[in-house]
């Protein structure tokens, strides 16, 4: 039963990974770059919202998402904007360095204390059965995942903007030739990313609290979910994120935090050796030679 309870608890951290993974997949789809800075943007968002004490929580949420827009665009202008047509090497190096710089900024502004954002709902627990409880924070995170998934599904797969975003990702030169404003679309994508990431950061800071120490654990968990689930399908990062979060939570409860990290690492290495593309099949196929 303790396993079931920790699996339920893992839904919370799993939701976080799923959301950050979704954000990472969003920029991956549009710019063709796996952006390692996404985790840092989320944490910055959480820290920012935690500094807004004394304002109604719902207003904090809206304000945070709005502030996320210029932050996302700034990150784009300072790093990924230059990466068009560069090697994957440059992409990984630049975004990892950007993540590290943003983490430095978070330490500088907010030190390494655990901070909470104003809570929309007072913490409460629901009894599911005699020994199984779930708190409303977890439910809030799961609800955020549903909202995030629906938003991405709607925008990416069912709007003209979505088709434009995909076109830009698949072949920027051809996209420009057919008249798409590639630069503007990329900036839009990062604006959306910033808002999404700050929104996620706020929810995260309400439920679990954030610290600048979380930048890389969050990123690794989320990207683990992304590659475990597969990046070709919107469900990929969700399924992967929940899997990683729950595996980690169950191991932590049984052994220690250290073993949680080990189990996640092994999970990814082994699953990817078996299914290189991730658990959820990619609908698009790319050729090698």
């Amino acid at each position: 039963m303790i396993y079931l309870q920790s699996a339920v608890n893992g839904l919370g951290i799993g939701s976080l990974y799923a959301l950050v993974g979704l954000a990472a997949m969003f920029v991956l789809r549009v710019t063709g770059i796996v952006n390692f800075a996404v985790g840092a943007i989320v944490v910055l968002g959480g820290l920012f919202s935690s500094s807004l004490a004394g304002i109604p929580p719902v207003a904090v949420l809206v304000l945070t998402a709005l502030v996320g827009v210029p932050v996302g665009v700034a990150v784009h202008f300072m790093s990924t904007r230059w990466l068009r047509g560069r090697s994957q090497f440059a992409g990984v190096l630049v975004t990892v360095a950007m993540a590290s710089a943003l983490q430095g900024l978070a330490y500088l502004l907010y030190s390494s204390d655990l901070r909470y954002a104003p809570q929309i709902f007072a913490p409460r627990s629901f009894q599911l059965s005699s020994s199984l409880t779930v708190d409303n924070g977890t439910l809030l995170l799961v609800a955020a995942v549903v909202v995030g998934y629906l938003a991405c599904w709607l925008v990416l797969d069912h709007t003209t903007l979505g088709s434009a975003l995909r076109a830009v990702s698949d072949d920027p030169v051809a996209a420009r030739l057919v008249g798409l404003r590639v630069r503007r679309i990329e900036i839009t994508a990062y604006a959306v990313l910033g808002a999404l990431a700050f929104f996620v950061g706020n929810v995260y800071a309400q439920v679990d609290g954030v610290t600048a120490d979380n930048v890389f654990p969050t990123l690794v968990g989320a990207l683990f979910g992304l590659i475990l689930g597969g990046s070709g399908n919107l469900l990929g990062p969700l399924i992967g994120g929940f899997l990683v979060g729950m595996a980690q939570s169950v191991t932590n409860a049984r052994l220690s935090d250290f073993w949680g990290t080990v189990v996640d690492l092994l999970l990814v290495v082994v699953v990817l050796a078996a299914v290189p593309g991730g658990i959820v099949a990619d609908r698009r196929q790319r050729s090698v030679a």
Binding site: F36, L223, I227, D257, F258, V268
Partner: peptide, 25 residues
């Protein structure tokens, strides 16, 4: 042998995190 590019970067970053966690644990 079976991971490339960013996947390898991610897995190795995580491996380094495990090492760091081991030092503390």
């Amino acid at each position: 042998a079976w991971l490339s590019g960013f996947q390898l970067a991610l897995v190795t970053i995580a491996a380094a995190t495990v090492f760091g966690a081991a030092l503390v644990s």
